[in-house]
Design a protein around this nucleic acid. Sequence first.
DNA 1: CTTCTTTGTTGAACGTGTTCAATTAATGGG
DNA 2: CCCATTAATTGAACACGTTCAACAAAGAAG
Lengths: 245, 245
Amino acid sequence: MAPPEVATAVGKSLTGKGARTRARILECALELFRERGYDDTTMRTIAERAGVSLGNAYYYFKSKEHLIQGYYARSHEEHLAVCGPLLEAEVDLEARLRGVLRAKIDTSAEYHRFAGVLFKTAADPESPLSPFSAESLPTRRQVTALMGEVVEGSDVKVTEPLAEELPHLLWLYLMGIILFWIHDRSPATSQTYRLIEHTSSLVTRLIKMGRHPLLRPLTTSTLKLLREFRDEVKSPATDDASTPP
Amino acid sequence: MAPPEVATAVGKSLTGKGARTRARILECALELFRERGYDDTTMRTIAERAGVSLGNAYYYFKSKEHLIQGYYARSHEEHLAVCGPLLEAEVDLEARLRGVLRAKIDTSAEYHRFAGVLFKTAADPESPLSPFSAESLPTRRQVTALMGEVVEGSDVKVTEPLAEELPHLLWLYLMGIILFWIHDRSPATSQTYRLIEHTSSLVTRLIKMGRHPLLRPLTTSTLKLLREFRDEVKSPATDDASTPP
DNA sequence: CTTCTTTGTTGAACGTGTTCAATTAATGGG
DNA sequence: CCCATTAATTGAACACGTTCAACAAAGAAG
């Protein structure tokens, strides 16, 4: 099988020159996004800075929105890289959870400025950038796995019915934090960090209480609900993934 | 004080002719949105069907997105109208909650097709259409009040620390349901109705358990958190509300 | 009625995302 | 080396959202 090369707008794989051009375009785009935000960055400007023609930018990126996917991929990798050592050094569940959440915000800080537009496009269920879309399933899986590691590598033992769903719940929790972060206008998004502080404690306590007999019926219903609905929101079409000529 | 007339794009009030033109434009816009969706509806088409010039449409609506606010207002009124009789006839908390949620989905059904774009623009924190924005505060307050009525008019007595925050929590719950609905691709969004069925039961049980001594510390922390953060996400600027010449 | 101000309306123009037929490099087989 | 096929690249064109200077209609003031 071929090495996992980046895909072009037309669905072909790239090696050598093409890949370099593509990377250059993405680089300039993200640079400009940071400098002046998403809306004030023109495809023409991106092309110009990258030293290519306008049409050429569209050869590598199907649309302006698709440039955002480049950001996602990068941010995600960075997050994983930071979390690795963190999860090796810590066993306390709350600390692990807090660390992973903080890391996500830390690595995204530079892009907080255009996070709004980012989320805006991500919110559209038709968009391949939606966190629920089929196209972002691989990334979602990785993050869910990361959350699983957060729990499993900790000193808290989680029994089976919860254990299966918990990673998905924590993924959802992370999404909520990001949603808050996007709307956070406090200096250096300090409110988000405070929110992480408080909620991670709360969530940890909830997890530890999960086994309590009094909560049993509630926990059971909730888990049943999750299992049932988790995969119902599967993306509908994404029919334009490959464009047969 | 003047009667609460609709506002134009330039912030003036309207009476008579202007109001009629504005209403006609909105009418045609929503009609077209239903017919062919948001993206495939052109401002030029809207203007044409409404029998006005392109520029004139922009005299009454600052942007294409602002037409969506017209939809919001209408949908919201409809929801309130349906909920009124419903809340008078029912005292069971779960039934009341379920009814209000169902009503929201029912009244929105016609627009499910372009709900994605709708949510997309709403998700942008800079947008005045964001449910968290200052511009939608009045509507949010009304829905929160509605949720308060759901609880207060029921046969379940909720004591004070929870009572204050519960309406806001239920508002958030409604937002979650809407988010699911937007992504729901099942026929007639039946999955959303099932989700309402299940979660309303779950939420009701949670409310009833709120007072239990075992959960006390958790409830307290959660409520403290909510009080602290609820109004932190206050919209930042909305500086372009009035355009001083 | 005339004049001034406010309100309503127009059509042309601009900028931007996107598409596409055409053109030039790169690659590989004979 | 030449040719054919694919990969890259171009620039012009299109459609749409949005802006704006200008104009018309409607009231208000004298």
